[in-house]
Design a protein around this nucleic acid. Sequence first.
RNA 1: GCCGGGAUGGCGGAACUGGUAGACGCGCCAGACUCAAAAUCUGGUAUCCGUAAGGAUGUGGGGGUUCGAUUCCCCCUCCCGGUACCA
Length: 763
Amino acid sequence: MHDIPERYEPAEIEPRIQEHWESARVFKVTEDPAREKFYCLCMFPYPSGRLHMGHVRNYTIGDVIARYQRMLGKNVMQPMGWDAFGLPAENAAIENKVPPADWTRSNISYMRDQLKRLGFAYDWDRELATCDPGYYRWEQWFFRRLYEKDLVYRATAVVNWDPVDQTVLANEQVIDGCGWRSGAPVERREIPQWFLRITAYADELLDELERMDEWPEAVKTMQRNWIGRSEGLSIRFALSDGSGDLEVFTTRPDTLLGATYMAVAPEHPLATAAAASDPAIAAFLETCRHQSTSEAVIEKMDKLGMPLPVTVRHPLSGVDLPVWVANFVLMSYGTGAVMSVPAHDQRDWEFARKYELPIRQVIAPTDGAVCDIDAAAYTEQGRTVNSGEFDGLEFAAAFDAVARALEAQGRATRRVQYRLRDWLVSRQRYWGCPIPVVYDAEGTAIPESDDRLPVVLPEQIAWEGVASPLRNMPEFTTTILPDGSPGRRETDTFDTFFESSWYFSRFCSADSDSAMVDARVDYWMPVDIYIGGIEHAVLHLLYARFFHKAMRDAGLVKSDEPFKRLLTQGMVCKETYYRDSDNGRRQYFSPGAVEVDTDAKGRAVAARLLADGEAVTIGPVEKMSKSKNNGVDPQALIDRYGADTVRLYTMFAAPPDQSLEWSDSAVEGASRFLKTLWRLVHDHVSRDRVATPNRAMEDAKQRNLRRHIHETIVKVSDDISRRYKFNTAIAAVMELVNHIGRAAADDPAALDELLDGLDVVVL
RNA sequence: GCCGGGAUGGCGGAACUGGUAGACGCGCCAGACUCAAAAUCUGGUAUCCGUAAGGAUGUGGGGGUUCGAUUCCCCCUCCCGGUACCA
């Protein structure tokens, strides 16, 4: 090791050491009950084509933690795999006429090389891709276990339907109400789909959060609010004509006497029945049929409604209340109907104002403060007024009194309701795991038996048009039922969150072809630290928690929770550049294709497309993504500076949980630091140490350096293991290197301190 | 709309438990080396006034608690993530 070259040449040394790591299987691990295990996991990537900066940042954080834990002597597993099913592969298939399987596998191959080039300490023997039948057969197998436990059911749900392309669109594919390819106005369509009963686990998913003290508070709060447990009253209002009941759920029974109208969803039977004889209502429902299915869009649109020719009887006052159809009431929430109390709900208040419906105050502030119902709804809990025999009660007492009165009439039931809805796992797409179900001649669904699994997705396909080709493949859809009669195969595939809900368990026994997971899973699970983007705070992380509990209840794993500690990485963001084209759609340009002019303060003021020299609009700073085309390609930086520089810069630029606005000018600094360090080591490594240094002979400067070395060890250890602040750990090491460099110039005789310092810095 | 997060020099960020605001790095300025440049090294660099010593101001905006607030509380603005079929 004494013949270190004078110049730092990452392009030469990095591939050499990486080949050694690979050929010697340095990071391969097996279970060792004698040693403390550490399972370090980063969210696996979607193989989109090339690594982006978010990947580099994510996997560098994981690698720093994994290597630190190895240095502590733990048995560290750090695996890597591919979240390989998904929409982009279908788009590539449509655009480039290449089968999604081929496109995906070639992306995996390229990105695997990139990961190796970045030098991450992965146990590659555990690599998996979710599009391999050897992986997805086990979720088909588990689907049947869930079915047997009544955790699977079939029901109708609304989708975005593109009437031109004759296909279902993802929310992301609907732009201003139109299909992104066809440009045709999208329609809502109800179709039968498969659901997993995640709500059966709602209470456990909620309660367990209290004990997850190594998860960020923000993520737990988001999950709590998402689950949204509320206690309330399910009230059955009798239709005035005696033809039935209208059931609603409310968390505010204390406001019942303030209810002045009812609102139902456009798909509600009362609305569709009225539309049959009233063209105006039918026309309204028709406009609602083009409404978005996205909550963000629905909540921001104009709130519209129409009165229906029915009324309901108020169970306490006996007054008949009008029933309206309203575009913001969702059929998929609860019963598709709500009771409206405009005096005490702001949305109801605005709707009532717009349509001149009565606003009736029945709650007043407990402290006697004035509240002006003409200005806004009073939404706080208070004391009942204008409520006859229920007057003067505070929230809990009023709730109870109203509940008892209605229960006595058989008109209400106390109920716990969740905002969380069951997990819709059906996708009308080709590139996913086939849902293992067959239908008989009557259309009855029969889950596939274990001995007929996997249901293999045909990979060599000819893609015509836009819709999933599976429906037009008789060799796939035609099948024989267990009783020998002809059957038809389900052509829907699973939501890709299905695959990402258990891959961490599969990594523990990735080579098993006889079981979903085996006993090794209980050595490694739970994951000790899970690192990934904050954008997964709810959906992926909640589905994965649910799935793990369902696996536990099927006897497959012992742990209650899959992820002991969670580190949510902030987004890597970058300015967007675009032009609005004539058809109203936006064309985004990659930062590499654009030249940006800055003012004296370094702020971007204008941008031009390099290809034609014409101006492009500078858009907001957003998460680097394919759809915004604002990703910075790390490969160019790796080629120019080496992997260590890119990794160092990524860790130095910001703390991991903070969003990072990318700037490639500062990468130079990281490179400079590594060169300086290399030269210092080169200048000293061949010098011989004094055999037994005499610490008592150290002068003040030397003692000062030795003290600084040890302070840095404490600081860096704490920053990495407790604080997860890699930027300040690096800053501390830079300060130490500056100190060592000055000492080397001033006092070359202080060799023992210099060499000790360099040893520590290199570690 | 709702839920969660954020805002500190020209730029990225630091200040961990309420106690010297701006560590470390980028950029910029000056100097050394060089025929010259690059690279490298040394020094300076929050803003305003001042030759300087020094003074004043300063952590998105407004208010509050405190001997003391980037940090705690209330209100607001803007930005980011999620919003159930992007992953």
